[in-house]
Amino acid sequence: MNEAHPSWLIAECIAGNEAAIEMLVRQYESSVFRLALSIVGDPAEANEITQETFIAALRSLPGYQEKKSFQAWLYTIALNHSRSHLRKRKILERLRTTLTTIFQVERQKEVSPEEAVMQSEKEAQIWRSLSQLDERHRIVVVLRYFHELSIAEISEILSVNEGTIHSRLHSAREKLRGALKNWHGE
């Protein structure tokens, strides 16, 4: 990720320079969107999270200290907003389940959109296995492989030491490998 953000750009954003703000937003818009999308899985929601992330980041910009890289700082905000959306979604899901049970409404089987784009059974197997990982393990896989971040960068974003990141990645890979091996065995 090309991180061209001289301190002057951030200073200009803090001062309220609208051109500088737009420059900053355009530079990171796509990557923030893809991070949100990789967590919530829904493009519309990811767009919403992207907007929320930048609003929150611009408001908190005066408090940004250069101990953390700007990208890591921004990704942390995006991650927090994404998780917040997931929590709300889980609450709604639980409510829907409760109402379904109460009113004995039959739910139609929903076809997963991910399955529609899967190119092969192997891919479907890996994808199912990835979805079944707990959030802590899944997020490190996503950040490492999809966002191509280094272990140090992931450690910075999640505020977890590098040894823990290694451990989670190893464990996740092991589970995905096991899923693929089971598929081979079928």
Partner: peptide, 24 residues
């Protein structure tokens, strides 16, 4: 086996998530 997992994972993610956002 580890390499195979990685080789399947990345294209699957890209296919699913490599979208462009609606410009803010």
């Amino acid at each position: 086996e580890i390499k195979e997992v990685e080789s399947i994972l990345l294209p699957a993610m890209r296919r699913r998530w490599n979208l462009q956002p609606i410009p803010l």
